[in-house]
Nucleic acid binder design. Sequence first.
RNA 1: GCCCUGGUGGUGGAAUUGGUAGACACGCAGGACUUAAAAUCCUGUGAUCAGCAAUGGUCGUGCGGGUUCAAGUCCCGCCCGGGGCACCA
Length: 835
Amino acid sequence: QYAIETGQHPATTTEKNIATFKNQLDKIGFCYDWSREIKTSDPEYYRWTQWIFLQLFGSYFDRQTQKAAPIAGLEKLFATEGNHHHPCPGDDRIHFSAAEWKAYTDKEQQEILMHYRLAYCGYGEVNWCEALGTVLANDEVINGVSERGGHPVEKKTLRQWYLRITQYADRLLEGLETVEFSDAMKEMQTNWIGKSTGAEIEFQLISEQNTVKSFTAYTTRPDTIMGVDFCVLAPELSYILDISSTEQKPAVEKYIAYVKSRSERERMAEKRITGCFTGAFAVNPFDSSKKIPVYISEYVLAGYGTGAIMAVPCGDERDYKFAQFFEIPITNIIGAFFDGENANPTKEAVLENSGFLDGLPMRKAMTVVIDRLMEMGIGKKKVNYRMRDAAFSRQRYWGEPFPIVWKDGAATALTENQLPLILPEVDKYGPGPHGEGPLANITDWTARGLETSTMPGYAGSSWYFLRYMDPNNDTVFCDKKASDYWNQVDLYIGGTEHAVGHLLYSRLWTKILFDLGFLSFQEPFKRLVNQGMIQGSSRFVYRVHGTQEFISAGLISGQQVDRIHVDVNMVDGVELDTAAFKKWKNGEFEKASFVLENGKYICGVEVEKMSKSKFNTVNPDILVERFGADTFRMYEMFLGPVEQSKPWDTKGIEGVHRFLKKLWRLFFDDLKGPIWNADAPTPEELKVLHKTIQKIESDTERFSFNTAVSAFMVCVNDLTDLKCNKKEILEQLLIMLTPYAPHVAEELWQVLGHSSSVLDASFPSFEQKYTKESSKNYPVSINGKMRTNLEFPLDASPEAVEQAVLNNEVVKKWLADKPMKKFIFVKGKMINIVI
RNA sequence: GCCCUGGUGGUGGAAUUGGUAGACACGCAGGACUUAAAAUCCUGUGAUCAGCAAUGGUCGUGCGGGUUCAAGUCCCGCCCGGGGCACCA
């Protein structure tokens, strides 16, 4: 995108960005081992990305062993026994015997194998923008038009590469039990995989044309079959027009056109109920007298289940609303569980109005219905996954080329010695013809039959952690000796935004490489900590839908507008620099006109993820320049808990800076020079030190860096108050401070007269001596309200405590005119008196 | 809409296990030093009521209920912010 906008080669801008980031990381004082640096866009790296892709292309998932295996073995099996024991994951209608397999042409065989490969080529729907000639992410589509240019967007079927991640669904679920991820993260991945057990049920169809005799619906609640009041099909199913009645057809066609212009996200997020009756009816398989109207609606997606649902309004909220909207009569099969106003998804009811199921508890009815369906040959138990295979090709320039040659319509792998397949130079970065990638513009490339799409950004990032273990190896992606030695990533820091993308893909790749014998572990990350995001403050302009007119934020009243991110650097507060905006993005907004308020264009504001695509990033450089790297580091830690997101705001950085200056003054006086001394510390000073050691040790251990920084501040304040400049104390302080403020710690270490580095000094073990408690403060409350504190020896008996409390003046005053009901001594921590 | 997550003073946040809510820092106010400023230091700072004051009372962790001797923390129902929802990765 940036290359198209600016005409610069992505390699150039990537290099520049890397240099900038490295520079910033160095400035902030991060200790990375740059000798292991890798670049996913470097041919020496992506030759192995391509190599791994070929392993995926050359493998299938053996359901019996639940492992990936070379596809050559499968070919041999087909020749001896057909696919009887290996049902086709890509298309379960494909069945053949050994004899039939041998009779297939080479091309037919290849097509079948493609249905088994872990990396395969298939067809899928994308957001297509004809005017731009490109595919767009849902993110880039606003109100059915492209963010860039405001052109119409619609669905288009394109040939795409996919990774068969669905075959690994169960393994990915099981693996979660072996890793230390947060429960929230595990839950997100589990929900994404979305394993559900239910049934597929075939419904007979009654339609005018009568060409389509039936359809299959997927449901997780077969027990509610007698409560089906209507069915809903996904509008994009190919046979919808074949079942529509003459009367309904115009409405159906109109509705399909409407859905085609909608992104999947918009469809799911739609609050309004939309849909259209097809004029066809389904027949309840257990009661042929029940004619069930068949609708289409955007909330049913073709990609999930069978793209058809049976709707039970008394048990499902969305079905209920749909039934109300279209005034479909509701059958109540759960008796008193249904109040007529809210659907109740209970599984506890005893079925009513359900013919042969009457009187059965729902849980039992599930298996009864499935058994009956199987007897009748019109249904079966079915495990379904919400997750779909991962789209793995992009119609873009800047990505790894696929090591694939098309020969007579069949995809053929390049050999290992032909890798890397280098990304060629192009004249322009714009799209190729017919929705193909930019590589399709290169005649030499297409003449060789090479695949013209490229791999997505996540290809290289799905295995980079393995390459760190053996970054310069030019004979293998990572020597097994190296991966055995380093093993899993001990601690992985990343944001939750990667929950269902990167973190799932890298788990998949690791599992496949494990199955194929290239690794000894099958989970890449032993422990995962989610750092929160530092968010940016974004600015928006509002384009009147279908025009080049931009309307100031305060003047929008009802017009349909497309909200577009603008670079925060072009906005002063909330006021847009309209001249700069016109020149922005290589003149994309040259023709923009503005509707101003009080002579100004006012932008919309929102706090969201800091991101290049949102143009709301800020740089640490200025702060590092002004306060130094240590202040910046400590401030980031001081801001709040690591796992919490918050907008970037430099209010308060002064406090951290002040702390470091104050620390400095314990060692050094501007006029007198070094002021530390070698005197023996007093018990009081040691107590301050060791309390701090304990606090910082435990805070650091549990990643509570913000409270650790606070503890440093308290410690320095206390030492200042005590006028303590003793070397023994200061040394210990510096050792703790090293990870927090390495530059300052190192310099002060030298001030203390050391010739070695503070890094060489070992972390002190916590000495209980000075913090050990001999007595404890007990809060005393009356009716739960705090009244006073009393100090008791740790070994005081409960009876002695009770006596002492009752003799206390404050307590006596409270008990004076009210009788005590109860004396409670809770968990040895708290004393409460009930009056 | 669905999944995840969060909501505490003027602000960022603390309270690790249901047990003294507001640590630490910013900001603000007052003061010291200074010709002045910067820097530094000291004092105060949730709201409200009573009191000259010391002090004391009441309220208070998004909203409404509940459990408990005791709720920021647990339960139920809402509201709002953030992340994700398959071509950003």
